[in-house]
Design a binder for these strands. Structure first.
Lengths: 369, 369
DNA sequence: TTTAGCAGTCTAAGTATATGATTGCTAATT
DNA sequence: AATTAGCAATCATATACTTAGACTGCTAAA
């Protein structure tokens, strides 16, 4: 059955004549615009006035045979299949630039100095959602590739200390822990040096491995050591979940394909469950922009049919974040891609040293001496 | 016109006979259950078999005159007005206890050791949403009443430092800032002492005041001092927005009153705009549980009609957080109140000293010496 | 004060009918 | 061989009409 699908999908893929391509593009464009089946007459009027509708109908029948088109019912026009969209984004789709009004929206959100990752995520998500009129998502990739440079343990009250893990990509995490009373600043300082020595220079992913770095630990640091290890272990599970920003989920309801309450609910539930969302958003190939249409996204049964377009944002070749949109398969891919592309080129995530963990201020304090 | 409304609202409020109350309660209960206008026959069958429907109809007409009931159309039963719900939650509503299965849900989310505020918020919101089948919200109150106990400045790399603000309610905030290179650990230590001396013992709200604490500052600490002040200033704006958790927004669509796509969209848009949400959620009176119905919530035009029930969570008499539900005016107030009440009594937000800023580990490190 | 009885009102559901959009096919045309 | 005109067939959608039934309000009697 799978084999069957495969052949019927790609049987004639190579054999698309120029005219067929043109008609297919017209249908996809038209359907994206109106969410209405496209008729032969409409194609003639808007794209191919030299041809008769009968000829176009013949071509449409052929395209349907090839798996690119469908009819909702006998007396309706044609609708693109997922396969058609895939071909469309790959070959057919027009490459647009952002319009002036769209650029204005970008500026509105990014003219102020942005210093927090969180702010960055939110602004990015908002821009994307506002321009595309779709639900957007942005999140920070868990920094498995970061290298630990420094670990500081700071006593902040009688019985608590803050453990700060610094990496080459910035402060990774800081955690308050209980310590026994009577711990001195000196102890903390020595402990800091000790754990930095052990973990420094290692990548997060190494440290997270089950049996990594089991070194002999001096008795006095044993408990603390365990705590630090646990912090690393927990890091992977959490971060990816907590730092995901969803913007414009109400926009789902603007799409005619979710006019049906059932479907709208399924989609919203899917967006609600953020832990399910993350794996779907993962941009598996190392492409700058990834487009997944229909069953490409299907990770569980009953998942609502949708398309997901994401772009990855890099610093020094390391992917630090992802942002994109989730919407119906019929979406304006051209516009979505141009927005994501523009943002990924324009918006600079904070460079490594300045990464803020909880920061609300990124001021230079250069003058101190 | 407003006066007119007022009088018609409360004209006969005092004069509700026992029987009228019983009928009103039956109607509210019935309507909450089925979202269908309640007829005189239904009331007789389910609540007052001794009375004739005609008598009940007479009473219903009187209750309508008093502003407690409405008819969607002539040949329909009665529907409660917002005023009826207000009376209902105040006097009429049955006080329930959580059922066994509901308690099970609470346990499922709270059996594990919860160490992060974020976790706490999420779990609370999830429990509430799951039991009530409504959209729930939880957020941390900005800690304006907290007193600064300690400020630590820690050099974490050549050119960056972490500024940690500790209060009696836990770590308030930690921010990465750029410093000039060549700053020594000693400088940081001295600076820590200095700013702690200046700000220590003061409440956040005092420090946030425009002209507060303008002391003579030694030249060498000047820049740093400004940075710290700015961190405090920014704190108020941000925190309240970022730490709000919404759970189960898809549940909105389960409510018949939002079956209309227009209304559903208005509601979801309202939930999307979190900065608008916060002021509405503020539990103005110092009540443990606040119930706002219909126009009680109206802070802007075009706001979707809804009811909001919130409970505040306290530590040592200080409100540290709020949690509640947003839904249609017709909601199961009895159940909502019992859940919120139960949680506010059972769920302990972390005690002050253990508050985690970004913590993923709350381990005791008692053994260190 | 309560109730039986009944006419009046209005919604919701069902049925029938008409309209029109669009196709596939056939046979003629280029 | 490719294209096209023409036409019957198909099906969704809109409209109007009809019916059934759920309640009420009112009147007059208990």
């Amino acid at each position: 059955m799978i084999a069957n699908l495969r052949t019927s999908d790609s049987r004639y893929r190579m054999g698309l004549t120029n005219r067929k391509e043109k008609i297919l593009q017209a249908i996809v464009d038209g359907y994206i615009e109106n969410c209405q089946p496209v008729s032969s007459a409409e194609i003639r009027d808007r794209h191919l006035p030299a041809l008769s509708t009968a000829t176009i109908r013949n071509e449409m029948a052929a395209l349907e045979e090839m798996g690119y088109l469908m009819q909702p019912h006998t007396s309706a026009g044609r609708v693109p299949t997922a396969e058609a969209y895939r071909l469309y984004v790959e070959k057919l789709m027009p490459r647009k630039k952002l319009s002036r009004s769209e650029l204005k929206i970008v500026k509105r959100y990014f003219n102020k100095k942005i210093t927090e990752i969180d702010d960055m995520l939110k602004s990015t998500a908002k821009v994307i959602s506002e321009i595309t009129n779709l639900t957007s998502v942005a999140y920070v990739q868990s920094a498995d590739d970061a290298t630990v440079t420094n670990i500081r343990i700071v006593r902040i009250s009688d019985s608590t200390a803050l453990i700060i893990i610094v990496t080459d990509l910035g402060v990774l995490k800081d955690s308050t822990v209980n310590i026994g009373s009577g711990v001195t600043d000196e102890y903390c300082e020595h402990a800091s040096k000790f754990v930095t020595e052990v973990f420094g220079g290692h990548k997060i992913s190494e440290i997270n491995k089950p049996k990594a770095l089991v070194k002999e630990v001096r008795k006095e640091y044993e408990q603390l050591f365990k705590t630090v290890v646990r912090i690393f272990k927990n890091y992977g599970n959490e971060e990816s979940l907590s730092d995901i920003v969803l913007e414009g989920s109400a926009k789902i309801l603007e799409q005619p394909e979710y006019a049906n309450l059932q479907k709208a609910k399924a989609m919203l539930e899917f967006l609600d469950a953020k832990d399910e969302l993350v794996p779907v958003l993962q941009n598996s190939d190392n492409m700058n922009i990834s487009i997944k249409i229909g069953k490409d996204n299907e990770i569980r049964d009953g998942m609502p049919e949708c398309a997901i377009v994401t772009a990855s944002y890099n610093i020094n070749g390391v992917t630090v974040g992802n942002a994109g949109v989730i919407g119906p398969i019929r979406m304006d891919y051209s516009k979505v891609v141009s927005v994501l592309d523009y943002l990924s080129k324009t918006v600079q995530m904070l460079p490594a040293g300045e990464t803020a963990s909880n920061s609300d201020d990124q001021e230079n304090v250069d003058n101190v001496k």
